[in-house]
Nucleic acid binder design. Sequence first.
DNA 1: ATTATTGCAAAGACTTTGCAACTCC
DNA 2: GGAGTTGCAAAGTCTTTGCAATAAT
Lengths: 138, 138
Amino acid sequence: MKDIDIRTRLAEKSLKVTPQRTAILEAIVKLNNHPTAESIGDHIRELHPNISMATVYKVLDTLVENGLIRKVKTESGIMRYDAEMESHHHLYCSDSDRIEDYKNDELIEMLENYFAKKRIPGFEIDDIKLQIIGKFIK
Amino acid sequence: MKDIDIRTRLAEKSLKVTPQRTAILEAIVKLNNHPTAESIGDHIRELHPNISMATVYKVLDTLVENGLIRKVKTESGIMRYDAEMESHHHLYCSDSDRIEDYKNDELIEMLENYFAKKRIPGFEIDDIKLQIIGKFIK
DNA sequence: ATTATTGCAAAGACTTTGCAACTCC
DNA sequence: GGAGTTGCAAAGTCTTTGCAATAAT
């Protein structure tokens, strides 16, 4: 995602294109590691030394509300953010705080087929997320 | 799980059987609703008016460490607790903070079979958790 | 008797809010 | 120009920590 795309994506949502917003969205895309608010702030502060964490949080909320990024929940309760908006799952390292995206259309399809046949009584499914916990091996 | 069982389960882990611990473990089992630390505290305070939240948190940590309960992560970042230790998944209500257990051995087996065949390169799976998001219908 | 646990108060981590100054459209 | 956004400081929420008093084995 290029700089121009980032500005476009903000504008498409009728969001004012500010340096803080472009920097934050760009950071999440570039870091590509499900960063925390804190690490986004640290990264941005190299170019925008004056950005405040309040702004980071406000912008993150705005981006989530507008469907430009997603929150990723963690065991520790610290929120992390992800610019990948397509349906995908997550690999969680059981030894560290590493989280990687895991895309697998076949798996998504298998689950959709399964739940199309086997309904859950009293429940209407919107989305399914897999948390795959394990170890990254070299 | 009866009172005697709760005391036994604590003792089996070489944990001292205190009124606070039995009350907290009993509350999680009885509430059966993935309570937060706060709602556990509120529930217990009816019988133990003096229990402190610090104790609630310490006991919850101890119970998690000893495998007697589990933490359930939520979108909001507030931790919730679950006394169900068998492998199971969760139904998350997209309109409220309701979370229900979802047990389905067939589904677990299907996923195990799938990942037995289809490995994830560079990753060794320990556990898989499904978060099924949707709406409870009456 | 020994060791672990409790409760209090205080601190900590992460996040949100109020508001005046400032920016973008 | 006007509505929306930023940054600061302060407050809020949830959770953890230190430590003396207390309770369990």
